[in-house]
């Protein structure tokens, strides 16, 4: 942890993350991850790939996919651009950590504070998401990842375990509205 006198607040505006159980569905607010975007610079595919191998030791996921290894989870966001997630406790300044590895082969942007994340766990995950977004979540396999819209809010959906466990990332400013949407939909089905 960095040494300073400022205290973080969760996206929902509390000191501790929220956890809500509706029927057999659990919706958990997560604020224990750091987040950065990383984009390959033009003509730097070789040093970029080498740095990615050093940093993550995994094959960069393609469109619609995520990949995990050790502390890192990556998912594809745009052509030649990925989001990288790591534990907040050890990687709070994730952008600096990655910049040291990638140097001028990548454009790296800190995103930690910009996103909220809610994890959906349980049998009702798919039927809840069915009421919220056009993505065919029932057919998402482990590690599938995509961007979509939930109640006008742009989100990333990452499937951690098919049919059972999904992470929804949305803009932090709309955390309250996104959480409300998830809880309302869950009440319809769970």
């Amino acid at each position: 942890m960095l040494k300073h006198s400022l205290k973080p607040l969760t996206p929902l505006g509390s000191d501790e993350p929220d956890s809500t159980v509706i029927g057999n569905l659990k919706i958990t607010e997560r604020d224990d991850f750091s987040f950065a975007s990383i984009a390959q610079r033009d003509g730097k595919s070789r040093p970029f790939a080498a740095a990615a191998k050093r940093a993550f030791n995994l094959k960069l996921p393609g469109p619609g996919q995520s990949a995990s290894n050790g502390d890192y989870t990556l998912f594809w966001s745009s052509p030649e651009q990925w989001f990288v997630e790591a534990p907040m406790a050890t990687h709070e300044d994730i952008a600096s950590i990655l910049k040291a590895e990638f140097e001028e082969s990548a454009s790296i942007t800190e995103q930690s504070g910009g996103w909220c994340r809610f994890d959906l766990e349980g049998d009702a995950s798919v039927s809840t998401l069915e009421r919220l977004c056009a993505v065919d979540t029932a057919m998402m396999t482990d590690q599938a990842a995509t961007r979509s819209v939930i109640e006008h809010i742009g989100v990333f959906i990452v499937c951690r375990s098919a049919g059972q466990y999904f992470s929804i990332y949305g803009p932090r400013s709309s955390a309250g509205s996104l959480h409300h949407a998830l809880v309302s939909a869950a009440k319809s089905v769970a």
Partner: peptide
């Protein structure tokens, strides 16, 4: 037939 530009705003930004 019309060739037109669309932006995947709520997707991959292509």
């Amino acid at each position: 037939e019309h060739k037109e530009l669309w932006f995947h705003e709520q997707g991959d930004r292509s």
